[in-house]
Computed example of a mutant assay.
Amino acid sequence: MRMVLADDSALLREGLARLLADEGHEVVAGVGDGEAMIEAVAAHRPDAVVADEGLRAALAVRRRQPDVGVLVLSQYSEKRYAVELPTRDDAAVGYLLKDRVAHVDDFLDALARVAAGGAAFDPEVVRQLPSRTTLPHGPETGYSRRVLAILRYLGS
Rank of each mutant, 00 (worst) to 15 (best):
A21M: 01
I38T: 14
L19W: 05
L71F: 07
A48Y: 06
V31W: 01
L16T: 11
Y81L: 03
G30H: 04
A82S: 08
V49P: 01
R80Y: 09
R64V: 10
L16V: 12
G54M: 03
P66I: 09
R56P: 06
A17R: 12
P46L: 04
V72Q: 09
L55T: 14
A82D: 00
D33A: 09
H25M: 07
A48G: 10
R45S: 13
A58M: 03
G34Y: 06
V50L: 12
A43I: 02
R64E: 14
A82P: 02
L73E: 08
E39G: 06
E39Y: 02
E26W: 02
L73K: 02
D22G: 15
K79W: 06
A60T: 14
Q65E: 13
A82H: 03
H44G: 12
L16S: 12
A43R: 13
L59K: 06
E14N: 13
V68S: 11
E26I: 03
V27C: 08
V68C: 13
G15H: 05
D52F: 00
V70N: 03
Y76V: 12
R64H: 13
D52V: 03
R56H: 12
V70A: 03
A42Q: 12
D67L: 07
L59S: 09
G54D: 02
P46H: 02
G15N: 13
E26A: 13
L16K: 08
V49T: 00
V49G: 01
A57L: 01
V68P: 09
A57W: 05
V27S: 08
V49I: 02
G24P: 08
A42F: 01
D33Q: 11
S77I: 00
R80M: 09
V68A: 12
A42E: 15
G32W: 01
G34S: 08
R18T: 15
D33N: 14
A21H: 07
G34H: 07
A17K: 05
A51E: 05
V70R: 01
V41D: 08
P66H: 03
E26H: 11
A43F: 05
D67Q: 14
A40P: 07
G69S: 10
D33V: 05
I38V: 15
R56T: 12
V50C: 01
H44A: 13
D33E: 13
G15Y: 00
A29G: 10
A36F: 06
A21W: 02
A82V: 15
